[in-house]
C-alpha cells in the first residue's frame, strides 16, 4: 500500500508494465518531452527513452490505427489520446478496426491494445473539451471499457487491461488526476467486476468514474436525512457487472443511476434497462437517472455546474423515490 495521486497511479502502472514486458510501449501526443498533457507520463521518457515513449504528430486516427497494427504485430501498445474529445477523430479505427478484427478474421487475429484518455467536464473548458462519451464506446462489442474512479483502480485496471487479448479503452476523468488515495500493489483486477463502495439498505446509487465522488457525498448527505444508500461503482461499462447491480437493487428496491453524460441514449439508460429486465419485481419505485443537462457544455462556471450531476441533485432524485 502506498499513498499517491490518481495521476501517479496511472504512471506507476505504466512504468511497472514497461519494466516487466518489453512489448509494452506508450505513444500519443506530447507523452514524451512535454510529459503528457495531464503530466501522467512525466519522467517516463527519461527512464525508457524515445523508442518506447513515442511522441506522435496530431494524427489521432493514424496513431490509434498504428496501435492496432502494432498489437497485431506482437506488441502491447498503450496509446494515449489526450482526451475523449479528440478520440472522435479516431472513431473509425476504434469502431471499424479494433473492435471488429477478431470476429471479422474468424478468430485469427486479436488486438491487445490499451487506449487511454481523459474524459469528462467540470473544468470550464466549454463545449468541445468536456465530453463524456464513454457510453458510446461501451455500445461496441469487441472492445472493453473501464472507468477507474479511485487511485487503486487506476493502477489495477490499467494493469488488468494490459493482460487482455482485446482492445481496452480506459477513461480517466480529468478531475480525478490530483485525487489522493491508497494504491494496492500486486493486485491484478478482473475487468467486469463492479465495486460496492458503501453498503446501504434503502436505495442503490449506481455511478462510475468522475460521478462516483459526488455520489458518495450524496450518500453521506442522505444518511443525515435518514436514508441509507448503497453505492455501486461500475468500474467497467463493458463488460457490465449486471449481477452486482441486480443483487443490490433486489435488496434495496430502489435505484438511481448517476452519470455525467447526457441522459438521452446515455449509459444510464442501459443500466436502467438491465434493472427493468432483471429486477422489475423487486422495485418499489421507478428507476431514476441523474445525468448531464441536454446542452453543449457551457463555459461559465455556474452554468457548467448546473449542467453536471451534483450531490444535491442526486439527493433530490433519491428523495423523489420515497
Amino acid at each position: 500500500m502506498a499513498k499517491m495521486t490518481y495521476r501517479e497511479a496511472v504512471r506507476d502502472a505504466m512504468r511497472e508494465a514497461m519494466r516487466a514486458d518489453p512489448r509494452v510501449f506508450l505513444m500519443g501526443e506530447d507523452v514524451g518531452k512535454y510529459g503528457g498533457a495531464f503530466a501522467v507520463s512525466h519522467g517516463l521518457l527519461e527512464e525508457f527513452g524515445p523508442t518506447r515513449i513515442r511522441d506522435t504528430p496530431l494524427s489521432e486516427s493514424t496513431f490509434v490505427g498504428a496501435g492496432i497494427g502494432a498489437a497485431l504485430g506482437g506488441m502491447r501498445p498503450i496509446v494515449e489520446v489526450m482526451t475523449i474529445n479528440f478520440s472522435l477523430l479516431a472513431l473509425d479505427q476504434i469502431v471499424n478496426n479494433a473492435a471488429t478484427l477478431r470476429h471479422m478474421s474468424g478468430g485469427q487475429f486479436g488486438v491487445p491494445l490499451l487506449v487511454r484518455m481523459a474524459t469528462g467536464g467540470g473544468r470550464q473548458l466549454a463545449a468541445q473539451h468536456s465530453h463524456s462519451l464513454e457510453g458510446w464506446y461501451a455500445h461496441i462489442p469487441g472492445i472493453k471499457v473501464v472507468t477507474p474512479a479511485t487511485v487503486a483502480d487506476a493502477r489495477g485496471l490499467l494493469l488488468a487491461a494490459l493482460k487482455q487479448a482485446d482492445p481496452v479503452m480506459m477513461f480517466e476523468h480529468a478531475t480525478l488526476y490530483p485525487l489522493e488515495g491508497e494504491s494496492e500493489d500486486g493486485t491484478i483486477m478482473e475487468i467486469g467486476r463492479a465495486a460496492l463502495r458503501r453498503r446501504g439498505k434503502d436505495v442503490s446509487l449506481i455511478a462510475y468514474g468522475g460521478a462516483l465522488g459526488k455520489t458518495e457525498r450524496a450518500a453521506a448527505q442522505l444518511a443525515q436525512l435518514g436514508i441509507d444508500a448503497e453505492v455501486i461503482d461500475l468500474r467497467s461499462l463493458r463488460p457490465l457487472d449486471t449481477e452486482m447491480i441486480l443483487a443490490s437493487v433486489t435488496r434495496t428496491h430502489r435505484a438511481v443511476i448517476v452519470e455525467e453524460a447526457w441522459k438521452t441514449g446515455g449509459f444510464a439508460a442501459e443500466v436502467c434497462a438491465r434493472i427493468m429486465e432483471g429486477a422489475f419485481d423487486a422495485l418499489d419505485a421507478p428507476v431514476a437517472r441523474v445525468c448531464g443537462a441536454e446542452v453543449p457544455m457551457p463555459y461559465a462556471q455556474a452554468l457548467e455546474q448546473a449542467a453536471l450531476p451534483q450531490p444535491e441533485s442526486i439527493v433530490k432524485a433519491v428523495q423523489g423515490l420515497f
Binding site: 486516427s61 493514424t62 496513431f63 490509434v64 490505427g65 498504428a66 496501435g67 492496432i68 497494427g69 502494432a70 498489437a71 497485431l72 504485430g73 506482437g74 506488441m75 501498445p77 473509425d92 479505427q93 471499424n96 478496426n97 478484427l101 471479422m104 478474421s105 487475429f109
Partner: peptide, 20 residues
C-alpha cells in the same frame, strides 16, 4: 492481415505492423 472496407482504413494498420 486482411481486407479493409473503409477507404484508407488499412493504412494506419500497416504503419503499426511496420512499427512492430
Amino acid at each position: 492481415f486482411g481486407g479493409y472496407a473503409i477507404v484508407a482504413g488499412g493504412l494506419p494498420i500497416a504503419v503499426g505492423l511496420a512499427l512492430a
